[in-house]
Amino acid sequence: MNIFRLLGDLAHLASIFILVHKMHTTRSCRGISFKTQALYVLVFLTRYIDLLYTWISLYNFVMKVFFISSSGYILYLMKYRFRPTHDPSLDTFKVEYLVGPCFVLALIFNYRFEVTEILWTFSIYLEAVAIFPQLFMMQRTGEAETITTHYLAALGAYRALYIPNWIYRYFTEGTVDPIAVVAGIVQTGLYLDFFYVYVTKVLQGQKFELPA
């Protein structure tokens, strides 16, 4: 464990707390893509299936259980408690275009052709693009609540912080995980546009608005 990975994981935790906080205080899931949140449940379930047969550390175990359960809880909030506040007509990105290609890619580019290994690889590829429905939704409405932008900033920072972690691990441990690294760089890249608006507008106290 190094400082970059720890900060990355803490940013990931923070993003979830911000999202749940937003929903509870505004009693609404307006502006949040249900599809993106559902993809995260799929990502966590397919990646953390190793909970059933591997022990890494208490930290690793607790975090995995937290990510699975909190993502399920968010889905529950959106589907039941705050359902009337969700507008499916804005959440129109076709997830088949993400899940299908990610699965095919996982079948082709993986470390070993085994079920759990392919599921792990699939989860890495899917996580990289799972934010698309959310970004697509914001593109359509052209705006976002400030709290939603804090959520996205923390979520984007999480994978961005994994990049210096991988560089650090290469020099200290000699390990490189090409699948995670390439997907992580793509994932971070998808946030660059958002980060630009976040830093130049939201952090200056302005509303998050995209040019028409």
């Binding site: 990975r5 190793d50 890494i56 690793n60 975090m63 995995k64 470390y111 390990t175 995980d177 995670a180």
Partner: peptide, 10 residues
């Protein structure tokens, strides 16, 4: 030398 990845990340 580069070793194969260990899956200890989240």
């Amino acid at each position: 030398s580069v070793r194969p990845p260990v899956k200890d990340e989240l």
